[in-house]
Design a protein around this nucleic acid. Structure first.
Lengths: 221, 221
DNA sequence: CGTAAGTTTGACTTACATCAAGTTTTGTGG
DNA sequence: CCACAAAACTTGATGTAAGTCAAACTTACG
């Protein structure tokens, strides 16, 4: 519940009020499937999950990758059915936040309400940023943006801003950034050669964050 | 307020309760700019608007295009500042929905609250669908998906499901779908030749919706 | 009515995809 | 703990969808 509780700690003795239950997922397991009934949001406690949207013809878009502190499942509120699947990229633990409880708390507390709304709005902003990345950037810029975003999110949770361990395969990264796994692999190799990062399999060290930033912001032409 | 009020009509005599004010925008005018303080959502009453996100280097992503009945401005809730600009594509009129009023109403009514949350969640879903389009589809599929979505939205409001008048330029469409205006133009011409649509400038008639649907769902390779 | 903005179309270039082969890592059962 | 199969990754050669540059045409508007 981090992102949520932390920012709510004054108004929300959440674990108590919410009578939170937990779910454990093993690597590869699915928390929710597209079409399943919506009843709760989930807070990632530990591990990493992905939200996946699938086309009728089986193409997958990895909409986002979630780490400890993130809240997932917001797509279900609209219709009472999830349309995104959520799956664990490694063994993970999540808190179940029954949505009617959240709504009751939001009616009772202005501050809790505002935090709930801010949570949903942040999701909207985050997705718009991803749309910007997909719509305007070249492959190398997308990958640089992805690495910086991931590192920043770890940093915001007290971990290193320069060393990240990817939980996604090259293929998953490709399915998130709209490119093929070969392109992801080639770019990792090139960034390594150019001294922007240091890659050992899934371990990536951001050697030159400034250069990565510049790359992201360089005109795409 | 359509989308919102219509679905809320039972619980929400909105115009009365909200003491709604109106804004008129001339074609090209901006309702909010990135960085401006957030105070309200806006319901499109008539006309068409776009939400635009800009990169540091000036590249634009048109995040969405809004028609009568849509609610805009949700990105501002998160931080109290908008990060998306909103501009009119033609002369338009919008209702101002002060957000603290909406929150007060949501605390008072379960039904209103649920509708507000559904509104935000629908936005999340809609953006994820756009991410899917940008991340997995080729240019022709993206354009077909765009046309079908627009026509469906007009149809849901009682207009024709086969005749749409585009308010965006080819360049704007390109900036929404992640392609160049020349590509948009070429695809319009090709779709016309192939009998999928009939184009006269900004007027587009969807001649063969089934074929367009099939095109969207054909494997991208 | 004239100028600017928007659009179309063609010729050429390029970023990324595809196909293919070989290497490394991971995970599982003996 | 090793063996070995499957999954993941890397790298090269080649193909292609879409971008770029350029010029002419059309539409909108002050």
């Amino acid at each position: 519940m981090h992102a949520f509780c932390v920012s709510n700690s004054a108004a929300l003795p959440a674990d108590g009020v919410l009578a939170v239950s937990r779910v454990r997922l093993r690597k590869g397991e699915t928390l929710v499937r597209a079409g399943e009934a919506f009843a709760a949001l989930y807070a990632v406690r530990s591990g990493t999950c992905k939200s996946v949207l699938v086309t009728p013809d089986g193409q997958e878009q990895i909409v986002d990758c979630h780490i400890a502190g993130d809240i997932v499942g917001t797509d279900g509120i609209a219709t009472g059915e999830h349309d995104c699947a959520i799956a664990a990229l490694e063994d993970s633990e999540l808190c179940v936040l029954p949505f009617d409880h959240l709504e009751a708390l939001a009616r009772a507390s202005n501050e809790f309400q505002r935090n709930l709304h801010a949570l949903l709005s942040r999701e909207i902003r985050r997705e718009r940023k991803t749309m910007l990345i997909l719509g305007t950037m070249r492959a190398e810029q997308r990958l640089a943006a992805f690495l910086l975003d991931l590192a920043d999110r770890y940093a915001a949770r007290g971990y290193s801003a320069t060393e990240v361990v990817l939980r996604m395969t090259r293929e998953d990264i490709g399915r998130h950034l709209g490119m093929k796994l070969e392109t992801v692999s080639r770019l990792f190799s090139r960034f390594d050669q150019e001294g922007l990062i240091r890659v050992h399999g899934r371990e990536v060290k951001l050697v030159d964050r400034d250069a990565l930033h510049q790359l992201v912001q360089s005109a795409t032409q």
